[in-house]
Design a protein around this nucleic acid. Structure first.
Lengths: 103, 103
DNA sequence: CGGTGGTGCAACTCGTCAGTTGCATAAGGA
DNA sequence: TCCTTATGCAACTGACGAGTTGCACCACCG
């Protein structure tokens, strides 16, 4: 399991998460199109897409002169895995506590 | 389902997440104790604990003159819920796509 | 062949936040 | 009671990051 830090950091920003959710629910889009739908400049969107791409939450594909981004839901696996590991560590601790009292 | 933003933001910081993981795996601890285990000052830890408490990831309990914090794993439900909603939005979109091609 | 729309790069501003230091306060223990 | 130890409050610093503006570049369309 790799470090969930980059993905968590990427999801922590509201605008960036809005972009990601937009791509998951409405499908692929270019930076320019997203900039029209969201209240920020195209460059801001482009930066966010770059970061989302860097952490594997988004996929970049060039179509002609346009650059279209699509969501990579699998990238959320990092977070899911971390949640799971935390949960299991918690359960393990509870189990140890139970045993110490059962003894 | 409430906004996952605060919890995600809280988990985005490495030190803060380290504190949280420490509490889930090794059990409750005071700010002073945590400050000895982590390479930051007690005040820094105290701030992090305050934020974790504000978003429901940690529980504060006073024992004598000490203040002990314990992990609230349930607080992660916010994130789990968000992951689930994103996943279902994704699935819905896939389903629509499939239908449009089956027709 | 002009021009229009879509990208990319770079510099700059500004706010937020992690972390620190310093001081005040209060509660246990010897 | 004195001293140690745990906490809380406040001010300050430094850095990272989101967002903007400006400019250059290039592909497609009329």
């Amino acid at each position: 399991m790799t470090d969930p830090q980059p993905v968590l950091a990427a999801l922590a920003d509201p605008t960036r998460r809005a972009v990601f959710e937009r791509l998951t629910s409405q499908g692929p889009a270019s930076a320019s199109l997203l900039a029209e739908e969201l209240p920020v400049s195209r460059q801001a969107i482009a930066k966010h897409l770059g970061q989302l791409d860097a952490v594997g939450l988004v996929e970049r594909s060039e179509q002609g002169r346009e650059v279209v981004y699509s969501a990579r839901v699998a990238g959320l696996g990092q977070v899911a895995g971390w949640l799971e590991s935390v949960g299991s560590a918690w359960d393990t601790r509870l189990e140890r506590l139970r045993q110490s009292f059962d003894a």
